[in-house]
Design a protein around this nucleic acid. Structure first.
Lengths: 401, 401
DNA sequence: GTACTTAGTTTAGACGCTAACCAAACTAAA
DNA sequence: TTTAGTTTGGTTAGCGTCTAAACTAAGTAC
């Protein structure tokens, strides 16, 4: 427990309590069901304190007893586990082509995963209006579903590509054609549930959260790289998302070095340019939904098509230069190639790794490990839900009700 | 008080106490001398708590009463101020050409500022050995001096360009010709004071700390850009230094995009290349001490020499591209041009600002404000000392003694 | 059945914050 | 000069939370 806010922020016993409740929750999240005694032993908390804390959490329906764990000599312990039955968190993911909704219970189990086509019409103004309605409707449906199951909704977070302010305003999203759109406010208005926690955040950042939780080690410095819309990175440092002054972090796609008009990293290492180059004959309009095109590229690569392989190598090389930039600037322990990059990792990784090593100052000592995401195309939706679980795991228990 | 460590870390009363001691210290640091009552009023702490906290701090000689502050109606308060007389912190800065030592008392007042020439010989191994001896000697002298004044030394931090691990090993420092040098260990051995807190850190990061304190707002997202050795950045996010997995952050100079051998940002926007270009006739060997050369460039610029001005514009433009990268990746509120860049800011800034704006995604909404450092060439030494004051300001009081 | 081992609760105590009260020290006004 | 009002700073009682130690509970080992 250490002061993070630089602004003076006094502490009292409730903070101690919150911190220790969080310690118990995170221990169970990381290590699975445990007895009170083993929690006390491995966290360093006193047995009496653990009893008090777990009693509090059971009362809040965040924990439940799951039978005995009599593994050895002595009195068997009663195993405690996260209780998923009382709460749920919802994540939505907005892409140019489709909408994804995902719900997790508090234990982290997936309750639903819905996809819905989303056609962004030509008219940007109309597009935003209609898209917002679709998002609100899907959020409403997902919330209703989990409420039918008797769960309280902890919150809804919407993942969006581009620049999203912490207040929930989408300042600029080229892939969606949005700018200065108060998405959080619009959704709050549509859903008419003032006590519901609604948030909007960048999709790569949320995907990084999901990846962090998937990895298991919450202290890992991890960066997630998304190619779903431009090239974006989500950066976790010191166990927390890098937010920046306004929340506009990880915009790696604009990276360029040279005269005006020189190609950017998004031009050189983006998925869309890759598809255009690897599938030259096809209609570019049909690539608004990238997933099938990426699949087609993978099929050609598997057949050994030289032009496709060259394009992939080239993309990988340039991507590696971008990753080197990340590695040199924020020095993550691992960089996770996400969404479409993960689908093409087999052919992209070698060149990316080579360029990453070539452009990292001390590749052996400080270079980032490159890995591939296993979370698929809805990592950001998952991250949106995870963000609410994380809030509880850091001590902000849900309001009594 | 909020949990930062993701690893379960239980809290107890001592954490509450430490947090609230820190609240009082930071309030006084930010607002100057105040009475107990006004501290209570503006921090939200109870009057009784403030009395207890300040009593504790006075006993530790971190605070002292400085007379009455009877400004208005009612009983006048006794003003409390930071007490500089009992403790001092030392920062050392290692550059290719010279060594700087600086000491601050706990109130933040400068106690000494020493410079010493440091000639790095050709033989790297010998260079490290001799340099380390010189550093140790200077540190020893500075420590002795402040001890003669009756002050306890809180710690010594050495600022070094390049990759420095958190344990104090310099993994790679091209400007110094060092690699895998356990500088902290060597200094600890030389100084033979096992209870003395010795640290080694990257110079740009420490300069960023100094700049943050100089600015006054400890919640500012700030990035410091150093041109003293290559191009390095120190990044403060969420009020804390960005450390990364191993401490290798801010290495912006390696930034490149293109085939192998393409110029890096350090080639295009570095101070050394600028000097070589602006002062073509002079002996490059004589530029190991950059400061006079930079002064010469400034003189030529002031006379309006077209070639010099063009070189400066060019450097500024490329630097702006690098800053845009920083702005897009970590979204700082302000970017501070440090050391030699600050000396040449008059000519570099316009082009840098233009390129920064051109390459930032949403310049109006999220663009970083470019400013110039006022701390000169020893900002990192200052930051080294400041880092120890910061540790106390965040609640780690010095050991009783 | 007795001894041993481990789990979880109870109890006593310490710590540090808060709220309420009180004395001190000053100004303002009668 | 007195009296009322205001603000400071300290004191006391009470409360919440953690810790240590004792105690009860529930199993295994022999």
């Amino acid at each position: 427990m250490k002061t993070t806010r630089a602004d003076p922020q006094p502490a009292d016993f409730t903070d101690v309590r919150a911190t220790n409740l969080a310690v118990v929750l995170r221990h169970l999240r990381a290590n699975g069901p445990s007895s009170r005694a083993s929690i006390a032993a491995s966290t360093g908390l006193n047995k009496a304190t653990v009893s008090s804390l777990t009693g509090h959490l059971i009362e809040q329906r965040l924990l439940r007893e799951t039978g005995l764990s009599g593994n050895r000599i002595g009195r068997p312990g009663t195993a405690l586990a996260l209780d998923g039955s009382a709460y749920a968190a919802i994540g939505l993911q907005v892409a140019a082509d489709r909408l994804t909704a995902l719900a997790l219970d508090f234990a982290g189990d997936q309750l639903l995963l819905w996809h819905r086509a989303l056609a962004l019409p030509g008219d940007p103004a109309g597009a935003a209006g209609r898209s917002v309605s679709a998002i609100a409707a899907l959020a409403q449906r997902a919330a209703s579903r989990v409420r039918q199951q008797g769960r309280q909704v902890l919150g809804i977070t919407v993942a969006v590509p581009g620049l999203v302010e912490e207040g929930g305003t989408v300042r600029l999203s080229p892939p969606l054609g949005w700018s200065d759109l108060d998405l959080r406010g619009l959704l709050s208005g549509s859903l008419r549930q003032p006590d519901l926690d609604i948030a909007v955040a960048n999709q790569a950042s949320l995907a990084a959260l999901a990846e962090l939780r998937h990895n298991g080690d919450p202290r890992l410095d991890l960066t997630y790289v998304s190619g779903a819309s431009g090239v974006e990175a989500g950066i976790v440092a010191d166990g927390r998302l890098l937010h920046g002054a306004r929340g506009f972090t990880g915009q790696i796609g604009r990276f360029t070095l040279g005269p005006a008009g020189a190609p950017t990293l998004a031009d050189l290492a983006g998925i869309e340019p890759l598809v255009r180059r690897a599938l030259p004959g096809s209609d570019p309009e049909s690539h608004t939904d990238l997933a099938p095109a990426v699949e087609e590229v993978a099929i050609r690569a598997r057949t050994g098509d030289p032009a496709t392989l060259a394009a992939l190598r080239d993309t990988g090389g340039h991507l590696g230069q971008g990753l080197a930039l990340l590695a040199n600037l924020v020095n993550p322990e691992i960089i996770v190639l996400g969404d479409h990059y993960a689908a093409l990792a087999e052919w992209i990784l070698p060149a990316a790794e080579a360029e990453l090593a070539r452009n990292t100052l001390a590749p052996a000592a400080g270079g980032a490990r490159l890995t591939t995401s296993a979370l698929g195309l809805h990592a950001a939706a998952l991250g949106g839900a995870v963000s609410h679980l994380d809030r509880i795991d850091t001590g902000s228990l849900p309001a009594r009700g």
